[in-house]
Write a protein that binds this DNA or RNA. Sequence first.
DNA 1: CTGAAAGCGCTTACAG
DNA 2: CTGAAAGCGCTTACAG
Lengths: 342, 342
Amino acid sequence: MAEKKLSINDIAKHLNVAKSTVSFIINGKAEAHRISKEQEQRVLQYVKEIGFKPHYMAQSLATGKSNSIGLIVENIGDSFFGPIALMIEEQAKKSGYRIIYSSTLGDTQAALSVLQLFRDTKVDGFIIAPPLHMEEAVQQVINEGVPVIIFDRTLDGVETDYVGTNNREMAEKACEHFLEQGFKEIAFVTLDSSQSQMQERLDGYLSCMQSHHRAPIILQMAYSEERNNRKQEIIDFLQHHPEVDAIFFATNYLCISGLEALRTLGKSIPDDVGVIVFDEHDLFRLFTPAITSIVQPLEQLSTKIIDTLLSRIAGRQTKQAFQQHILPSNLVVRESSLRKNI
Amino acid sequence: MAEKKLSINDIAKHLNVAKSTVSFIINGKAEAHRISKEQEQRVLQYVKEIGFKPHYMAQSLATGKSNSIGLIVENIGDSFFGPIALMIEEQAKKSGYRIIYSSTLGDTQAALSVLQLFRDTKVDGFIIAPPLHMEEAVQQVINEGVPVIIFDRTLDGVETDYVGTNNREMAEKACEHFLEQGFKEIAFVTLDSSQSQMQERLDGYLSCMQSHHRAPIILQMAYSEERNNRKQEIIDFLQHHPEVDAIFFATNYLCISGLEALRTLGKSIPDDVGVIVFDEHDLFRLFTPAITSIVQPLEQLSTKIIDTLLSRIAGRQTKQAFQQHILPSNLVVRESSLRKNI
DNA sequence: CTGAAAGCGCTTACAG
DNA sequence: CTGAAAGCGCTTACAG
């Protein structure tokens, strides 16, 4: 059954030409090497006939290119990273690149080891939403000349392209919106993470509270927490803070746990507690009441990420300075943040 | 900056030993080749010192192994495939395999071309949730001796391992549950796809209806349909079938569109219409009312898929017959399928 | 116990 | 216009 795979060598022999001639023709460099049209046709014809496909590994070894991109995200099964990964893949495919991915689940060790693995694989470029403490390792990759795009959260002191959203501004906007609607005691439920996007969201919240002379009420949780523990932790928090009449969740999964907690406590939204969440999810659109969300422009983000990377790989921008691309999100106001009787 | 990458050759030269000796030692075959402990220590020590990592591509080219697995799913951003991909990756990582993935979005052409791409990459094995008409291409891969695990839907006539769930049985069970709860006119909303898992779910529904002498009411939609069109199509369908008092959705995304449709129509669940859906989603747990779901054992499925594949790759099961692993799902009854006033 | 050599399948100066 | 040859970095019979 298993037909023997033919090589460029076999073709050369069969056709009585040099290996290099075949190689040139296959790679569309026939003209550049002034190979006769007849030769070219003959080879192309035969290549098609036997369905020859070059051996990627060999090609990679010889050229030093792998035609693959390493994608390192937090969780490929997440409603933020999943769709982004899908779109990035679609675009990469058009340019002939494969995606090798890995989910870190926020674990720095895991991220470091997969970064090493991908380096060994000689990926042509990286797209990374890094966990904490990746600065050094990522900088090293960049120093080796491999293009890296950082997204979703920045990496302090690392010089490379970044794509993200206006976290601080949107958080502030969400908070202001609560106040405009007459909510007074606004809690912020977030991760105990010093990742930049989390810090920015926190900053936005704090800044709003401060300028309105209100005391911040904050719950910070571990990323690794089990879903059930998260729910319980939120319940405890709310019981210790009965004054809270609005909650701003810093991520979609925190909000999901939060909605479970509110349900358990029998709190009604938005009458007892208003809700806003950073990031979108099918759940938030369809929940009763629908949840006000800060929606990131996933498609634009993906496009910007992959375009920037491909340009770097192609070397078109080698001299261009690294850029910070901030694509603004959108506050989609739904029922959960509207005071009915204002 | 970019330090020159050292090769096995450099090591050999530096240490004054043969390349092969270094290779053997690095690959733990020192003993088998009766290399002296001192040599081994000396080499290992130096390897560690300079942080040498073998070049994967070169290794692959020489051995014919790539240490990577091709994962082809419908949509990596989906709440079924996303989590499965995450778990498969976690497990594969432990055994030193990378995952290269691609989403087909149900498009056979896309799937064929990525299959070819992965073959050229010399992946060591495939995990595929195939779209239609992949029989021939997949069989060809198998014939070349590359292990393939098919999951979620079968491929007619293709001889290989399969991992899936008891679609037919669960669909029947869901339908029976509706009837027990006093629902009479049960509609089935599905894809117009002849994929096996869809057919099995349809069969289960039909069989239940038949044995209770009820006429089936079916809506079949295209996978490629835009979300908004899907919603509208469901609205039209329900308006043409005012008798419907329960809907069984064949997939999670169909149900999401369905919930939007019901909301637009102002129908209340379960009083006007009961709802059950095949597959789980955060939305279904937290929706008001919570939606009864058929929950697949994602973790078990992932484990079975990757274990089976790794065994095949290791050649441990070459002689073992191909197997059909059917892991049963669970009908999680929630509010949406309970008749309040029965 | 160890080393020289061929080979994996390609690319690319270089020489004619 | 075309071909012989070296090289990418590894592995693995084979010979001593």
